[in-house]
Write a protein that binds this DNA or RNA. Structure first.
Lengths: 207, 207
DNA sequence: GCATAAGCGGAACGAATCATTCCGGTCCAG
DNA sequence: CTGGACCGGAATGATTCGTTCCGCTTATGC
């Protein structure tokens, strides 16, 4: 018997426990101390340092996971045949996954790896495709731009109340408002859309 | 001659300089040290401590000023005869004044005074009036609620790029989207609107 | 003129706060 | 039986900040 109730299994379980604990803690307070994560996970500090060389490593991992999750969702949206449904479904899923709160608040606390930069480039491509299909469906307001998406998600991530479930519901509420605003056959939007540089600066690596 | 170039005048000028410096610094980083404010203002730390007993006092003052500014804008909106224009103009002005970024991020770092709580109550009343008039104009989407306003403003305040002017333009852009979404004759909004308690918890005083 | 003190710059101090290391322990694999 | 993987948590050392303090400058009141 290789697995079952051994020290190894316990350790493997801790891997997950620590990661979700870290997610929860840093979601609530991006500047939280490492000790808070350990406490939340119900493990000692050593269990953390055995897995990650330092805090920055953990943060990087957390963000990279979020980025990958984002890309998964974006890829899933490609499967939806209706371009507009793909677009709105994509936004809703990303908001639900709460991927943005983390990446947004943790930005600048670590230097992105080349891998992350690559994944970030990939999300750009994926989102561009989703927006293009939405535009092609004829329901997307003219003037809406690929680079608007990140900011829209950021706006939703800003919605917050102490209760997590309620937060999700409220975010959906305002996302609905925004989506309707993006679908409106209304006039032109004020100001130029964000440049790519304005949308992606978080993932840019220091030279 | 009582005023002109005396020590008194210089001091009075510092009052303003310090306040705007503090606003700028804490807007950029809510956890900024007091020394950063002094540096930005081009004065010594003593100049700060001569005016405010401690950091919390300064933060309170800053927030209270913001709250008062908010109420001024709300009162000004009452002068606009068209209910819908009053509503949209009010939102635009508040977003431009950038009143929310401060109050939102600084919440919890100090305990509100009774005066602030009173002003907060007053803004509730003012906003309720504005929303009521918007509803009466027939252009406000059914289901939109008074307590939605704070969250909408919070969402806009989350929009941020390094350049301040560009930030203002982008915020206006997404506010336009949201306003169109709030005007849409579209279907009902998902989930119940925020309860008053969810909208006002920042200004509640600890018992 | 001159003593007084308001107003101020900035160094010094002391309390926290953290990331990280280290020192035993525990308990499976071989 | 035993070496080592795994872990809890105290100890450490650096850093960050709020606040205080000291000495200087210069209006101002007499």
């Amino acid at each position: 018997m290789t697995a079952l109730s051994g020290r190894r299994v316990q350790a493997a379980r801790n891997d997950g426990v620590i990661l979700t604990a870290a997610r929860e803690v840093f979601l609530a307070d991006p500047k939280a101390p490492i000790a808070a994560v350990a406490e939340r996970a119900g493990v000692g500090i050593s269990a953390l340092y055995r897995r990650y060389a330092n805090k920055e490593d953990l943060l990087r991992r957390l963000c990279h996971d979020g980025l990958r999750r984002f890309n998964e969702i974006a890829e899933a949206a490609a499967a939806e045949p209706d371009g507009w449904a793909a677009f709105t479904g994509f936004l809703a899923d990303v908001v639900d996954a709460d991927v943005h709160s983390l990446t947004v608040h943790l930005a600048g606390t670590f230097t992105p790896t080349e891998d992350m930069a690559a994944d970030a480039r990939r999300s750009g491509v994926l989102v561009a495709g989703i927006v293009e299909r939405a535009r092609h469906s004829g329901r997307l307001r003219p003037g809406a731009d690929v680079n608007d998406i990140g900011f829209v998600l950021e706006a939703c991530a800003a919605i917050r109340v102490p209760d997590a479930d309620r937060t999700r519901v409220l975010r959906r509420r305002y996302l609905a408002v925004i989506v309707d605003g993006l679908a409106a056959p209304a006039g032109t939007l004020p100001g130029p859309p964000p440049a790519e540089a304005e949308a992606n600066w978080r993932w840019r690596r220091p030279r």
